[in-house]
Design a protein around this nucleic acid. Sequence first.
DNA 1: CTTTAGACGAAGTATTA
DNA 2: TAATAATTCGTCTAAAG
Length: 307
Amino acid sequence: MTENLANKKEGTTVCPECGSTTILFDPTRGEHVCASCGLVLSEHAVDTGPEWRAFTHEELEKRSRTGAPTSYRFADKGLSTTISWSDRDAHGRKLSPSRRAQIYRLRRWNIRTTVRRSLADGLIELSRIASQMGIPNDVSETAALLYRRAVEKRLTRGHPVSAMAAAAVYLACRIHRIPRPLDEVVAQAKSDRKDVSKCVRVLIRRLSQDFPRPTAINFIPRFAAELGLSTKTQRRAIEIMKKAQETGITAGKDPSGLAAATIYIASILEGERRTQRQIAEVAHVTEVTVRNRYKELCKKLGIKIKV
DNA sequence: CTTTAGACGAAGTATTA
DNA sequence: TAATAATTCGTCTAAAG
């Protein structure tokens, strides 16, 4: 842990578990999470390291600027300026005719660029979905950026605004390696699953960008946190998952179910038992799936559990 | 009464021809 | 595009604690 902190001050945080250098910060929990293996690095980030260390774009902006931070979530990036329709200047004097013509053109451009309904509506809807899901700010920023690019490329035409916004949120979570099941996003969206997944496909195809597929390990930290499990148990679950992946029994299986199963095993092994029911609930799978996966894991990995 | 185990067909998904 | 295989889900029954 000490060398970890030293690294942090150098500005090169490395995950001690897997060596990955991509560390994400979850502002709502105050935790740094490894993007690759899901290990929570510093629960006590508050009293380690310098205050000003910025892990995300948004933090950086908050600390290095005066005034409100800019945000992709607002149609004008939060830098709104309006031009009044009065034909007098700041001192109340009448404007010259040429000046009036100039201001008139400015007004038109101002309106043309800021009042783009589809963009504005989409970003509002997007923020609503993200906040209802309790998604970290930097993730919803990513979602907003995706949505902007979709609008620029005219990909939103023919698709419900709500569905496209939900798709952006879903993909942003994947980019940040804190995947949420599509159904969880759909639950907050005002569109049905069909429309949302159609939008997801459009974005994946037309936005030339890599959208990493969720790995079972990516689900473990969130499930463990929601179940109130210790980081020790969480690490144990990740250990088991790695072994499972090496033996190749994870192919084609639902990552959520796999994560749920390893957590179930780890919680028993570490004396923090949770019922299949509890785990199935946070993982959004059924108890049946938890059972099948954990039975298979125990058999293939030679893990014995006392019932 | 709660938790777990196991079995069945139904339903949605990925792969293949 | 259609057929095939593998997977998960919902429900039911039963046993164990």
